[in-house]
């Protein structure tokens, strides 16, 4: 058995057979590495957001998955209501489920054929930013410095930039806050991921009232 050398570009034509013999007849491997597909080939994310695809109107896989997602939604909302009115939590849980369906592109690690989801990296970077008092982190995206977009759900193995939006209070000047956050993100990327970022863009998009401290317990 040969140990792997450099892994061929995933953009190469691939055919794959499902591993489960109980699955339906062989179908092409879904090109988006991060898109959940049901055994019938339908995208779970699209099913949830838009309903069954036209040619899957009577598909048993789609019907069952949709029923389960609806049941999940009902269960979460019921559980939250039973524990007191924290409507935000239900939304956040369902956001987590959606995130699992669409975790964003895969970010390449130094390790050959090692990847981290943009969602996991972004969460780390947001936490790193919010470790500074007076900073609330918002949208966080990872992209190639070159501007090349993700192909087949994967960012290219190239220098990467992180863009993070933050809100800050007035305890620091904006340039100081930006510099401090940038340093935390570079450090977190190196220490916890092993990722060397080429650029970190921090955009201050809002000012925090002194009392608007982010509730990190729910982060």
């Amino acid at each position: 058995m040969a140990l792997t050398g450099p892994v061929p570009d995933p953009a190469d034509a691939r055919t794959g057979r499902p591993t489960d013999p109980a699955d339906l007849t062989a179908r092409p491997v879904d090109p988006a590495a991060d898109d959940e597909t049901l055994p019938c080939g339908a995208s779970l994310a699209l099913l949830w957001e838009e309903g069954p695809a036209p040619d899957h109107a009577s598909c048993p896989h789609c019907a069952a998955a949709r029923a389960d997602l609806a049941a999940l939604d009902r269960t979460v909302r019921a559980a939250v209501t039973a524990h007191g009115d924290v409507p935000d939590v239900a939304a956040r849980v369902m956001d987590l489920v959606r995130t699992e369906l669409r975790p964003g592109p895969l970010v390449p690690l130094e390790e050959p054929d090692g990847w981290i989801t943009e969602t996991a990296a972004a969460r780390l970077f947001r936490q790193a930013a919010e470790s500074l008092p007076g900073v609330a982190a918002g949208s966080c995206r990872v992209a190639a410095v070159s501007g090349r977009t993700a192909a087949r759900g994967r960012l290219p193995r190239e220098p990467l930039r992180v863009r993070l939006e933050i809100a800050v209070d007035l305890s620091r000047t904006v340039p100081d806050a930006v510099a401090a956050v940038r340093e935390r993100i570079l450090g977190a990327a190196a220490q916890h991921i092993g990722l060397e970022l080429t650029a970190v863009d921090v955009a201050v998009v809002d000012l925090l009232e002194p009392s608007a401290v982010p509730d990190r317990r729910l982060a």
Binding site: L3, L106, E111, G114, W115, I116, A120, I193
Partner: peptide, 10 residues
């Protein structure tokens, strides 16, 4: 044989 690893959370 190739092995690819995707980290989905820390």
């Amino acid at each position: 044989v190739t092995v690819s690893i995707t980290v989905t959370a820390i």
